[in-house]
Design a protein around this nucleic acid. Sequence first.
DNA 1: GTGAAAGCGCTAACAG
DNA 2: CTGTTAGCGCTTTCAC
Lengths: 337, 337
Amino acid sequence: MKKTTIHDIARELNITFSTVAKALNDHPRIAASTKEAVKEMAIKLNYQQNKLASSLRSGKTRIVGVLVPTLDVSFFSSVVHGIETVMNSNGYNILLYQSKELYADEIRGIDTFLQTRVEGIISSIALQTSDYNHFIDLKKRKIPLLLFDRIVDEIGVPYVRIDDYGGGFMATEHLIKQGCKRIVHISTDQNVTIFKERLQGYKEALIKHGLPVDDSLIFTGHLSIELGRNCIQQLVNENIEFDGVFAFEDYTGLGVLKQLKELKINVPEQVKVIGFANEAFGAHITPSLSTVDQQTVKMGEEAARLFLKLIKENKYYEKEPEKIVLDPLLIPRTSSE
Amino acid sequence: MKKTTIHDIARELNITFSTVAKALNDHPRIAASTKEAVKEMAIKLNYQQNKLASSLRSGKTRIVGVLVPTLDVSFFSSVVHGIETVMNSNGYNILLYQSKELYADEIRGIDTFLQTRVEGIISSIALQTSDYNHFIDLKKRKIPLLLFDRIVDEIGVPYVRIDDYGGGFMATEHLIKQGCKRIVHISTDQNVTIFKERLQGYKEALIKHGLPVDDSLIFTGHLSIELGRNCIQQLVNENIEFDGVFAFEDYTGLGVLKQLKELKINVPEQVKVIGFANEAFGAHITPSLSTVDQQTVKMGEEAARLFLKLIKENKYYEKEPEKIVLDPLLIPRTSSE
DNA sequence: GTGAAAGCGCTAACAG
DNA sequence: CTGTTAGCGCTTTCAC
C-alpha cells in the first residue's frame, strides 16, 4: 500500500499537483472551493504530508536537537520535559540524543543532528567534555546552539542557567539567620563551574555576615550519599565543632542527615542542614531536608522560548549572546528550622 | 555559507557525484583509491550527509517515534532513557513527543510521526485515551507499533510490560508471610488495566493463603499522597481492623505511612506497608518503604530490542504479536519487616 | 570501476 | 486562480 501523495489527490480531482500543494498550504490565491475539495480528498485518501520532501525543498525541518547527558536523572528529564512542551506548542519537534556524559558521544550526537538538518541544538555539556570545539564549530557554521545549566562561557552562545552563586549564598545565609555560626560546606572535587559557584556563594555569605571562612569546614569528594556520611564522621572524629551543613546537592545532604542520626546528633536542634536541587525524596524524609530548588521545568521552558525568540529574529549570532539566569528558590524544611 | 554536497566533492575531484555517493556508502565496485580520496575530501570540505535527501530517496529514515504521556514522571523518563540507549547503539534516532495524558495530543503526536515517516512508534497510552482507533490505524497502515506498560490488548501489537498481576500477588504474599491477616488494598478508580491486575494479584494471594477477600478493605481514589492518608483515616474512623496495607503505588503508600505516623500507629510493628513502583524517595524515608520494582530502564531496553528484532525480520504484523512480560522485583524494606 | 539519468514528494518562482 | 517548471540532495538502476 503506497503512501498517498499530492499527485494522487490531483489525479482524483483532475487538477495539477501544484494546485493541490497550494490548497493544502492555504495559499491565498486558491479558490475556497478548491481548497475544500482538496482537503476533503486528502482526508478521504488518508494523505499525510511527507515532511522529508517538504523539508528538503524548503530547507526547514522544524526539528530541534536536544542533547543531554542522560534522561535517567530527574534534573535532565524535567528540563527536557519543559523544552518539549514549549517546542511542541510552537510547531517544533525534538530529536533526542543522550551523551552518557561522554565526549565522543556528544560529538556523535551533534553529527547526527547536523545530518538531520535540525534548525538548532539545545544542550547541556557532558562531564567528560573539556574541549569545546565541537560546540564552537556549530557557532561558526551558524547553527543555533543554546546551552543550559552546564555552561561554558568561552563558547559564547546564549544560555539559561540558575544563579548557583546566589543559591549558595541563599542557602548559607538561611543557616546563618537560623543562628548557625560554624557552617560546613560539602562540595565536589570535579571541576564543574556550577558547583564552584555554590561554594563561592557560601564564602561570600559568611563574609557578609562577619563569619570567618574556615578551610577546615570545607570538604570535597565524589557526589554520593556516602560523601555526606564520611564528612560528618570525619568532623566528629577530629572533634571539629559545627552547627550547620550546606551540602552542594541533596544526596550528599541526605548522607549528612543519615550519619547525624546514627551519631544521635539532633537535627535541627544541634545541627541544621540544607541541600541543593530539591530532589523528590527531600520533602518526605524525616526530618525533611531544606534545599534550594532549581526550577528545572521552567529552565527547559525558558530555554525553548529564548531559542525560539532568537531564531525568529533571524540573527542568532549577530549580537552579544543573550543569557537568562533563573533565581533559585529557597525551600526551608524541618532540617533547618 | 552553503552546505557542501556530494556535487562539491565531485567537482573538486573531477569525478561524477554518483561515484562520490557510492564511495561514501562503501559500494563494493568503487576503487579503494577513489574511496579514500572522496572520504578525505569529504572531511576537508566539512561534508555532512543530508539525511533528508537520503531518506526521501531510500524510504528509510532511521527514526523511531517515542510517544509517552510525560517525561516529568521518573517511570517514563527511565523507560525513554532505555529506549534511546538501545536505539542509538543500533543506528536509530528518537523523535520525542509527550501526549500530556491527552487523547488529542496523542493523535497529534502520531500524525507528526507519520509525516516525518518514522520507521515505527513506541508508545505508552495516555490516561485520557479510551478509543484506540489511532493505534489500530497504525497497524492497518503497517506502521510498526510497540506499546509498553500501559497496554491495550485489543490493539493487537507487540508489547513489553511487567507482570502487574504477579507484582500485586508478590506484594500481598510478602505481607502475609510477615504475619498480616487483614490486608488493606488501595487502588485507583481510573480504568487502567495494570492497576486492575495488581488488585487481582492481591485477591488471588489472599485466596491462596486462605484469607478472606473483604471488600471493606479495598479502597479506590485518585492517585496521590492524600489518597493514602484518607484511607487510613477512614479505616480508623470506622474502627475497621487491619494489620497490613498494600498501596497500588508508592505515593499512596507514602500517604499511608504519614497518616499512620500522625495517628501514632507503629510501622511495621502494628501495621506493615508496601507500595509499588520503587520511586526514589522510598529508600530514604523513615521507615523506608517496601515496594515492587518495575525495572523501568530494562523495560525501555527490551522494548527497543524487541522492536528492532521485529522490524529486522520484516514481517512486523505477519504473526501473533510478540509479548514480553518482565518480572517485578520485590524490594522489602523497614515498613514491612 | 565509473558515469548518465531518473526520480523520491514536495516548494516556489513564474507564466498565463 | 491554476498550471508549468525547476530543482532540494541523494539513491539506484542501467549502460559503458
